[in-house]
Nucleic acid binder design. Structure first.
Lengths: 334, 334
DNA sequence: CTGAAAGCGCTTACAG
DNA sequence: CTGAAAGCGCTTACAG
């Protein structure tokens, strides 16, 4: 049983397709009450529902944006997605979310797919590769916005945490608590992922600023699987760090596994601060000191900017990097 | 700068649109090597990318399925989504995920939206309402599959945990550990959500089976915000339960907040088992005994069945309920 | 106030 | 081996 089309409705209501289309688009300016009612009835009688695909083809707009996150396992990603969806829902825009899984090949595939589907714009947490694709979009003036990360040399609006400041928050907090040997671990730096690079940079600066020389041995960017190993190396040093700054939630989880397995007491044996709030920060033993990101606000602002570009049918204007401040939430892991 | 269309490619390669289309669809049976090469070159030279929307309109297939989860905050949802995406990626199908947020109105909106977008099929975790919509789909023989939950009276294939068995696992485990006063808390039963109803049912049966009379005072289905309150009531009873079965991960979180706030020791003051693995089950103090669901397998099987229906262009066949077994993972909260 | 016609960018019999 | 033509289901100037 085929679904009814606009032509079926038109026939049933004894008007033309044009008139039905006007009705659907609420262009009632000149429409007779009688006509309106007949169409209304025909629609509900036939159970007609407009074909979005056909409309999109004609209008060359899909009223859909795409979101590509580098890795959905980060709590931050899911929070931002939530904000994007809320904003879009309100404006009757749809969103398709894709998870690149930290894999540039997947990222490329999703970009191609979303563009083939003619999404009106893209919010992406770039993996760090596929510059050619982004360059193409910039040239086309395709609506595009980066979030969480940026790519050096590409002029794309980006919504980022003030990562250096976040690292500084952690360092100062540790020092205030009396720590001097402070380490930092984060996930792989292979592709120069912005937050990781900047957090490390900020971490070192903050230490120097307080007269502490950062030690190579205490600062590491590693693949997830390597973290536990490195921890056991680091903590076996003659002078092991007494505090560690975890660059993100996934790093924190690894550290927590390690300390649990090895009976390391937090904060007595090792103090801990991480960026990103984890769901269980409050109920952990001890409750975890974290630096939370204003994920909702970031997602909201990024979406608004993107939708603006879509509206204006242009992806240009003066490109900016928007920075947001993290907030240290002191609990008991420090 | 408009993106090139198939007509542009045809012109550039000096062939007809038909031939370009054949090329794109890899129907090379009769195509001259020379023609093939010219088209190939034109495509890369112009940076042509097929318009999926136009193809979808013509073929009346979008190669996209929709997924509507009742509440994405459940870890189970995200695990299932991952499985669905993996299967779809492999078969070059796309997926659009929507979160109904436990709100039947949102569910309805998303169903309408996805159908307007002409998705080829739907996997849904139904909220329990909107029966009319589902009935319509059944009548149309539209490809549809339920997951996690089902709706009484609707003949739709469903992939569910063997919830009664899962509850039994918990009860038996508690009894083996010497508990006699065993309670159960889960989230709201308002809409007769399958897993909650069945887990409660199974819980009671399992108790009776072991000669324990289930007490009304120990078994509750509540809104999230009410859980803490009820816990304080329950644990102030003259004979409070010594063990509680948490119906899902969100319930568990509430219980954990409560015990933390009130200094209740697990498992000494209160033993705990929950359905759903939470990310921190292993590193919690104490590590948490859980019943894990085979989320990946469930998502995989559901997707395969759905894609089968899509392929056959029919949503019928003999409808079944597929049951999967949970697995108790004993840790230290019991 | 409403309809006929063209066109969005594809695919697909069919003809040659 | 390749092209002309019709059509998927809409929207949108334009005519009357």
């Amino acid at each position: 049983m085929k679904r009814p089309t606009m032509a079926d409705v038109a026939q049933h209501a004894k008007v033309s397709k044009s008139t039905v289309s006007q009705y659907l688009n609420k262009r009632f300016d000149y429409m007779g009450e009688e006509t309106k009612k007949r169409i209304e009835e025909s629609i509900s009688e036939l159970g007609y529902q407009a074909n979005f695909i056909a409309r999109s083809l004609k209008q060359r707009r899909t009223f859909t944006i795409g979101v590509i996150v580098a890795n959905i396992l980060h709590a931050f990603s899911t929070q931002v997605i939530r904000a994007i969806e809320d904003v879009c829902n309100e404006k009757d825009m749809h969103v398709i979310v894709c998870n690149a899984d930290d894999d540039p090949k997947k990222e490329r595939k999703y970009i191609d797919m979303l563009r083939a589907k003619q999404v009106d714009g893209l919010i992406v947490f770039p993996t760090g590769e596929n510059e050619d694709l982004y360059e193409g979009m910039i040239e086309e003036k395709y609506p595009l916005v980066f979030l969480d990360r940026m790519i050096e040399g590409l002029s794309v609006d980006a919504f980022l945490l003030d990562n250096e400041d976040a690292a500084k928050l952690a360092v100062e907090h540790f020092i205030d608590k009396g720590h001097q040997r402070i380490g930092m671990i984060t996930t792989s730096l292979l592709r120069n992922v912005t937050p990781r690079v900047e957090r490390i940079e900020g971490f070192k600066k903050a230490l120097i600023n307080r007269g502490i020389k950062p030690s190579q041995k205490y600062v590491k960017g590693l693949e997830i699987q390597e973290i536990k190993n490195e921890l056991s190396v680091m903590l076996s040093l003659k002078k092991p760090p007494t505090a560690i700054f975890a660059g993100n939630d996934m790093t924190l989880m690894e550290i927590l596994y390690f300390t649990k397995e090895n009976g390391i007491k937090i904060p007595d044996d090792l103090a801990l601060v991480s960026v990103d709030d984890v769901s269980f920060a409050n109920i952990f033993s001890p409750p975890l000191t974290t630096i939370s990101q204003p994920a909702f606000e970031m997602g909201e602002k990024a979406t608004n900017l993107l939708l603006n570009k879509v509206e204006k049918e242009q992806g240009e204007g003066n490109v900016q990097v928007y920075r947001f401040n993290g907030k240290l939430i002191p609990r008991s892991s420090t």
